[in-house]
Amino acid sequence: MNLTDEQLERYSRHIILEQVGATGQEKLLSGKVLIIGAGGLGAPAGLYLAAAGVGTIGVIDSDSVELSNLQRQVIHHTPDVGTPKVESAAAKMRAINPDVTVRTYFDRAGPDNLVSLMSEYDFVIDGTDNFSSKYLINDAAWFARKFFSHAGILRFSGQLITVHPGQSACYRCLFPDPPEPGAVPSCSQAGVLGVLGGVIGTLQATEAIKYLLGEGELLTDALLTYDASSMEFRKVTVRRNPRCRLCGPSPTITSLEQQDQAVCDLSGSCKC
């Protein structure tokens, strides 16, 4: 691939970097990232990945933009209320950077479609807002053997971890027992500081970019937590759990369809 003059200029601040260069930029341009959920986390991730010139970005979401989303989902604007989030997000990403091919899936990420969808991408960003989806994505990534970035935000806090399935601790390694349905407050119940999605979603995009470049150390086997009130980041070292039902030596989850009864039902009861 040869960068055009326009691309050299557009990505100049990347190309200057020793760790990126034209070669790295070309890697980004041929990279494919799937963003699951075009909400608080997916919004900044999508914007930055598009700006960075990640060549193919897939966005899957079944919701439409609501007024209450606009406090934090910066990819959606006031006139977008009512339009499918994937459409709204794709329009912004294309406007930022016409180099980027945006694939939209106005659909719910489910056990039926997730593994095959993930297999078309290099890296997955979990930008969902409920436990069932987060476990589902973790498990699908295991079966698809895809790197992904898990994240969650709540009130004044956020956290993320990058998972290299089979090699580093997965979400189930850390949280072997899903909370009882209804026991965990989702954001609709607890609220969230709008910028949290910006902070954490941007970190997820960072992981995606590092992965595509092959540069730096990914946030694997470490949960990075952020407390906006104390302005503290903590990196908690974790490791694979030998009793993990998914990636441990004696797995009990051997297909994606099995895992749903363990968490709140997938029909959407704990959605925001």
């Binding site: 040869n2 003059d5 200029e9 100049s12 190309i15 200057i16 260069g21 034209a22």
Partner: peptide, 14 residues
Amino acid sequence: CPMNFVKAKAALEG
């Protein structure tokens, strides 16, 4: 600057 470096670097990587 810095576009000259950008272009030179891209050329060098080629």
